[in-house]
């Protein structure tokens, strides 16, 4: 759905739902996922329909993903980093049991 205008100078490696992906350093996670061809970031909490980023500026909350185990991160406001483990979200979140510190 998106393509990069140039090859990244400093590529970083990360994963989305277990799939290894590459991105340019310094870009947002949402941009990195879009450029990698990811179309579905999550499914909605009410009807379960697929969603993807709408605003790219922190307003719409449609780009929510789980980043390194932390749920509901706005991928448009998170910078992609080397080794990041990113997962799509399906439906509503569950409370994480255990040590919350």
């Amino acid at each position: 759905m998106f393509r990069a205008l140039r090859e990244p100078d400093h590529p970083v490696a990360f994963s989305f739902d277990g799939r290894p992906l590459q991105a340019a350093q310094g870009q947002s996670l949402a941009s990195a996922l879009l450029a990698a061809g990811v179309r579905h970031f999550r499914t909605s909490t009410v009807s379960g329909e697929p969603r993807a980023p709408y605003c790219m500026m922190g307003v719409c909350f449609d780009c929510l993903v789980t980043v390194d185990g932390v749920q509901n991160r706005q991928s448009c406001l998170v910078e992609v980093r080397d080794g990041m483990v990113v997962e799509s979200q399906h439906g509503a979140r569950t409370l994480i049991a255990g040590d919350l510190r």
Partner: peptide, 8 residues
């Protein structure tokens, strides 16, 4: 911010 453009 990412020098990407919509494709298709």
């Amino acid at each position: 911010s990412a020098a990407i453009v919509p494709s298709g």
